[in-house]
Simulated scan of single mutants.
Amino acid sequence: MEIRASTVLPAERRPITLHTADDLELVGELALPPGGAKPVATLVCLHPLPTAEGMMDSHVLRKAAFRLPALAGVAVLRFNTRGTTSRRGTSQGEFGEGEAERYDVAAAIEFAEFEGLPNPWLLGWSFGTELALKWGCDPEVSGAILLSPPLHRTTEADMAVWAESGKPVVALVPEFDDYLRPDEARTRFSAIPRAEVIGVDNAKHLWVGEPYVRIVLDEVVRRVAPDAHPLPTEWDGPFERDTM
C-alpha cells in the first residue's frame, strides 16, 4: 500500500522527559525501530519557531517519527523546547529567543548519550537550524541536517565552530524560501568547508506537500542510514494509528 501523508508505520514509541541544566523539564517522545531492533542512527529533532506555532509535532518531524524507525531503522527523538506546547504537553519555562535553548539542546544530546542511541545527528528546521548551529556542535553529535535555515541568529563564530569540528553539515534550502534561498545559502555556508547546500526546486519554507516531505526524508536517510536509501513509497506490513 502506498505511504501517504497520514501514514503511521510501526515503531516502539514512548514519552520521555528531558531535564535541563537550569532545572526545567521538557516533554518529548522517542520512536525506536519496531520489534526491539537496534537503531542504526538517531535523529535529534529541533523544531521550528514556537512563537510561530513550531513544535515537536511540526509535520516534517512528525512524519520522520512515523516512518523512519520502520523504513530505515532510525531512532527519532522529538521534544518541545522550553515553553512550547504540543499534544504531548507543554515544556516548562519560557521562550528564550534561541539563547536559553542551549540547555534544551544539551539535554537532548545528553539523553541520547545516556540511552546509548547510536550515531546521533541533529535535524533542525528553521529556528531549529539556528539552535543546531549555535549550540549543537557537541563531541557526541555526528553532524547536522538543516531544513530551511534562515541564518538570522547564527554568527560567524558559530559557523567557525562547525568548520573547525570537521563534522558534516547538510542544508536543504527551498527554491522559494521566505528567508534564505539556495544561491545566498551557498555563499553563507561556504564558511564551513564540509557544508553541502541542496537547493530543492519549487519548495517553500514550510515543505508543504507530500512530494517535498519525501525529498526531505530521502536526503536525511541518504546521510544517516545510507543502506536504507532510497526510501520505499509503499509498505506491505502493518500500520498504526496516530495516538500520541
Score class of each variant (00 low, 15 high):
L43P: 08
A52M: 11
S6C: 03
A157L: 14
A225V: 10
L46W: 08
M244I: 10
P211V: 05
R181P: 00
L77A: 03
A185I: 04
E25V: 05
T51F: 01
G237S: 10
E234G: 04
L26R: 11
L122Y: 07
P226K: 03
R87E: 13
N80A: 09
R194N: 09
L122M: 08
P139D: 11
R62D: 12
V208C: 01
E113T: 11
D236G: 14
A100C: 03
L61D: 04
S126Q: 08
G237I: 04
N119E: 15
A203K: 09
C45E: 07
M1T: 12
E97Y: 14
P33S: 11
P15Q: 08
I198P: 00
P226D: 09
N202I: 02
T243M: 05
V200S: 10
P69K: 13
E110M: 01
E110P: 00
T155E: 08
P139V: 09
P182G: 11
E196R: 12
L122W: 05
L49H: 15
A132D: 01
G28L: 06
V76S: 08
E219I: 02
G124A: 07
M1L: 12
G143S: 08
A100T: 14
V200G: 08
L133V: 08
A132R: 00
A11T: 12
E97S: 12
D158W: 05
A203M: 05
K204D: 15
A228F: 02
F239I: 10
A191H: 00
V173A: 03
R223I: 02
E156Q: 12
G93Y: 03
I215N: 01
R186D: 00
L131Q: 11
A132W: 01
Y103K: 11
E110N: 10
P226N: 04
E53L: 09
P211F: 01
P118K: 02
A65N: 02
E140M: 06
L151S: 02
A41F: 14
W135H: 15
Y212C: 01
W235Q: 11
L172E: 04
G143L: 07
P33E: 13
R67V: 02
A144E: 01
G54K: 02
T233N: 04
M159V: 13
R186C: 01
V60H: 04
K38N: 09
L117T: 13
E12C: 06
P34W: 02
P238W: 01
A11L: 10
T233I: 07
G28Y: 02
P39H: 12
L131R: 01
D183A: 10
A112D: 06
D104K: 10
W121L: 07
W135I: 05
E164T: 13
E53S: 13
Y212H: 14
E164A: 15
T187Y: 00
G166A: 09
D23P: 00
Q92N: 07
T243F: 05
G199Y: 05
D23H: 15
R88G: 15
L133H: 06
D158I: 02
R214K: 10
E175Q: 15
P48G: 08
E140C: 03
K134R: 15
N80L: 08
V105P: 07
A112Q: 06
V27S: 05
A106W: 06
H19Y: 09
R82V: 11
A160D: 14
W235C: 08
T17Y: 00
D183T: 03
S126Y: 04
D178L: 13
Y179L: 07
P174R: 09
F114R: 09
A75E: 05
G73T: 06
G73R: 07
E234Y: 06
A228G: 12
L117H: 06
